[in-house]
Structure formats: C-alpha cells, structure tokens
Amino acid sequence: MRFDVYTPLVLSLLLSVVAPPLARRGAPALAARVLTSAAVLTAAATTWSLVLLAAALLGHAPPLIREAREDGHPVTNPVPEAIGIAAGLALVAVAVRVYRAVRAERRTRRTLRRLCAGHPADTELIVAASEVPQAFAIPGRPGRILVTSAMLRALEPAERRVLLAHERAHLAHRHGPLVTAATLAAAADPLLGPVRRAVGFLVERWADEQAAATVGDRRIAARTLARAALTAGRARTACALHFTDRAVTRRIAALQTSPPPRLWSAAAAVLLLGTVSALLAADATGDLLRQLSGVLN
C-alpha cells in the first residue's frame, strides 16, 4: 500500500515531464489522444489515492486498534496520521478546483450560446462584425465556426480556406471535449498542468495538419498562421502584455517541415503510465480493504 498509494503522484510528475517533448515531436492526433487518456486515468488514480490515504485514518481509531491487538492481528497501518489529514485537506482542495473548472466551463458554454443567437441553426459560419481579429470553433451539435470580419479581411482567399478547414478539424475531431477532459484532469491533479498545456497545443497542431492536408499545401497553411498571428498581434499591442508561449511560432515551424511521425512506442509508454497509476490505485484499494477488514474482524 505504501508504494501503490504514492506512485500516482510520481506518475503524474513523469507524465508532465514527457508531455512537452511528445507534443513537439510526435504526430499530434495520436499524442493528444494518449496524453488526454493518460491524464484522465492518472488524475482519477491520484484523487482516489487521496481518498485512500484519508480513509486510512479510520485504521487509527483507537477502539479498532485495541480490538485488533486483542485478536492478535498485527496493526501495520503504513499511513501516518499527519499524512492522512494532509490527504483529507488535499481532497477538499481538489473538490474546490474541479468545481471551479466545471463552473468556468459552463460559463464558456453560456457565452457561446449567446454568440450564436440570431444566426440560422443550419449555418456553419458565424461572422462577428468586429475589429478584433479572432477565430474559434464553437463545439456543439452542429458545431459552428466564429470568425470576426477583421480576421476575414486580413486573409487571402486560400488563407481563409485554411482557417475554415482548421476550425472544421476542431469540430470534426471533437477537440472541445478532449481539451475539457484534460482541463478537468489538471484541475483534479495540478501536477498535470503541463499535460493540459501540451494537449491544448496538440489540438492546434492537429487542426493545422488537417487544414494543410485539405488545401494540399503546407506553405499556405504556415503563411495563414503567420498572417493571422500578426493581425491579432497588431490589435493586441494596446495590452502591451507581450506574454507569449511561442505556440504560434512553433506551429508555423512544424508546418515548414514534413508531417511528424506517429511515435507509437512513446504513445504506448504514456498510456502505460496512465494504466499503471490506475492499477496501483486499484491495488491500494484492495490493501486498504484487507487492512480495515483485518482490523475490524
């Protein structure tokens, strides 16, 4: 139990270390899928481990221990009381973080519904008559694509096709739910923050690759990103924040080389990490139940 219950934490860290290089080098569709699956499994295992650590406090209940001693059961509760209490507090923090993430998600959905108001239900493209260059996919059934008039004016015809193909790829491959899953996993297990960021980057790369394939020209796809980023950058200088994660530059650089290989072995390793944390959590559950039943009987 000692190992099993702490390992999901170590595995979360490990996953966060491998996520960024995988996001940079692997084919985005495969990498995004395995990283999200592993993140969800690991977050569930980590949360469950906290539940187990907190539940192990039950084993400290003096009457139980006394009874156990009388019955001749060795009481080897491996969880010190302080850790059990810390785990309980961490669980409360997890609950608050997940609640906040869900609330933010619902707020976003409400906003998106408002953006679609007044547009015919069977129309894919929603144009916002705005000088803010902006484009994003609105998940749902059917999914919609919102683009502002400023963004449309900035692009050439072939580039507009790239933009639409990119947003369509988000909708067709259900990137919205995928990112939401990764976001909730990172809310439950903050160690997975880098995995959430990697998934966010990967779905953009995935849509870039799809768009490049649709127009049949990686150079036009790269140019579209450059022009859109410059247009958006000009509009944003007023904020003077200059915060950047270099995401666009890296996406453009990726389009200037050939499509990345599917790193099957790396993907399998990532999935293994997720599976191992789930298995260990299950094993720890068995340990705890045995321990408690040993104490109780």
């Binding site: 933010a104 994003f136 849509a207 950058g233 200059h242």
Partner: peptide
C-alpha cells in the same frame, strides 16, 4: 475572466 480564453483560438500572442 475571459470565457473565450479556454477555447481553441486560432492564434495567440506574439513577442
């Protein structure tokens, strides 16, 4: 807090 920031936006900031 920006509800659209959570979405997959086409492009983000530049240095």
């Amino acid at each position: 807090p920006d509800p659209i920031a959570a979405l997959q936006q086409f492009v983000t900031g530049l240095s």
